[in-house]
Design a binder for these strands. Structure first.
Lengths: 128, 128
DNA sequence: GTGCCGTATGTTATAATTTAACAAGGCCGG
DNA sequence: CCGGCCTTGTTAAATTATAACATACGGCAC
């Protein structure tokens, strides 16, 4: 299996959007099992993989969890702000900071290809 | 168990430094088993945890792997450049970029506490 | 010293996450 | 129709991480 079904992708994206917080692959799996009894992890992972390729979902590397993309831009590397208390994730776009990161790493001849930027802290509500 | 033994910590750090590339916890475990037959994952994870608290090791969130800290500063959040080809990791310090990340996320009232910044690409040797 | 308590350490077992490898179904050209 | 290929599904297992339980060590009251 290579290309995950477009229907599956939509289904996963819907679950992610409904939930409103980062979800682990198994949380997604269980949410989807409600409507369909037989469903295995690879199905979910493949759909997630396709969604991420399309930029419709992001993976939180530091949490092993996934969120739907919150902006509409197709291709972008987000800065993700993750609330340690309530789990909400805010998505920011900031090309200059990515540019800067590339510059820093290129000091040694490194060729930057992809950035992972996650900020942990407290969201406005939880910090108040 | 709370505090991992200082001896264990040194042992883990030595393995990490000897290896020269990111290691998974289980790679560390196996490397240590060479000299000592009975050794369990929690021992390694606890030592790693203490090393990271001390800033002597870093976790690569996007690889689920660990590297020894390459600079001497005690407390710092590194920018890690990870070569996708050969696996080497270069460590950079750049407070301004972290500052900038905090600024960006604080636009919504977010209070930044900890940054995860990893750049994937090709190191100088592999890009050549 | 001896017995008790708390901290440090170790181990077993299992949970959670991810992927490899195999199997089955459907569509298209011949 | 039939054979191959692309898509999808499933089983099983590898990898990563932690909870919960068990043990040992060391000080301190007595």
């Amino acid at each position: 299996m290579r290309t995950p079904g477009a229907d599956r992708q939509r289904q996963v994206l819907k679950v992610l959007r409904t939930h409103g917080r980062p979800m682990s692959a198994y949380e997604i799996l269980n949410a989807m099992k409600g409507g369909e009894s037989r469903l295995a992890p690879p199905t979910v992972y493949r759909a997630l993989s396709a969604l991420m390729d399309a930029g419709s979902a992001h993976r939180l590397e530091s949490l092993n969890a996934f969120v739907p993309c919150q902006c509409d831009e197709a291709d972008h590397t987000p800065v993700l702000a993750i609330c340690e208390q309530c789990g909400t994730v805010e998505e920011h776009a900031d090309p200059p900071v990515l540019e800067r990161l590339s510059k820093i790493t290129e000091a040694t001849g490194f060729r930057a290809r992809h950035h992972v930027v996650e900020v942990h802290g407290l969201c406005g509500s939880c910090a108040a």
